[in-house]
Nucleic acid binder design. Structure first.
Lengths: 154, 154
DNA sequence: CCTTTACCTCAACTTAGCTTGAGGTACTAG
DNA sequence: CTAGTACCTCAAGCTAAGTTGAGGTAAAGG
């Protein structure tokens, strides 16, 4: 079974995503496959890790574009080693740290800031501490578009 | 000037958003306005805080839909007091805490997890700790769609 | 008064990340 | 050998959160 490669369906089930999502990722260049004699996709085992990493990175708020860029640092020819993946993830650590720090600042100033009058001001801590991070050119940028918490209740 | 209400342009400039964004928010029911004799929008001062809160909440990753829901808890007739805003923000504190905690778990397990083989497994800490949070029905849900860090470089 | 700037509505377009559907082919189990 | 899945491609659709543009009106300054 896994002897002659993984089929889309199996990868999808194993990774908890739809087949269409795998097609989509392939189209975006995030994963790749070979074809069997009947033109059906066959994957190497490392696709599982790729998909999982995509999912984990997305949870950190990293876009598919950035993930693709990160994946570009992986070796093309050989199967990525543990070390390759470690390198990749360590690049995201900093980003994640920055993001956590930002949310913490936001949390710490939230009550005071929304409650007081400063939120409408240009010098509000929430406003600025975030804007600063949100504009660091290429590099850690956070939560500046869309996504995220849905239906927060309240 | 502010005597007979704020114009869209002034609100936009003051809040650092486009006029079209204010139209959009109004259409979504997040802010509201009255009209002058010539059908132009006029806002009460509290719109400034609303817009600022929207922006702050978005930075936490809260969707406009959730923000609207949260705003529904504000008094309709009278201008919201400081306390009203505090109540609203305290609801988001918990969400923000949950979210920070989740990202921290993700950070702490990132290296180990991406580096090891577990990411493709159903019992991976990253996978599950996040999924659990991502599925708490209505309530804190995090980063499950789109958005976020763009162009992380690396 | 006249020009310029601000505002109005409505519709269409944008990006990300997928999903859905139509129409057709390949595999696999009995 | 024949169902019944699984798979294929391509195009269109969807949601969020806005932005852009066309065509037209209102207000403000000199």
């Amino acid at each position: 079974m896994s002897g002659d490669g993984w089929t889309v369906g199996r990868v999808a089930k194993r990774c908890g995503v739809n087949v269409s999502t795998l097609h989509f990722y392939e189209q975006k260049g995030l994963i790749h496959s070979t074809r069997n004699s009947g033109n059906q996709r066959r994957y190497e085992a490392d696709v599982l890790r790729r998909v999982s990493v995509i999912k984990a990175a997305q949870k950190m708020g990293i876009s598919l574009g950035s993930i693709k860029t990160a994946f570009a640092s992986l070796p093309g020819e050989r199967t990525p080693t543990m070390e390759d993946w470690q390198n990749l993830s360590s690049g995201w650590q900093a980003e994640l740290d920055a993001r956590i720090a930002c949310l913490e600042r936001l949390r710490d100033s939230l009550t005071g800031c929304i409650g007081c009058g400063c939120l409408s001001m240009k010098n509000c801590p929430i406003y600025n501490e975030n804007d600063k991070l949100a504009e660091e050119g290429p590099g850690p940028v956070l939560l500046n578009r869309g996504g995220g918490l849905e239906d927060g209740g309240h």
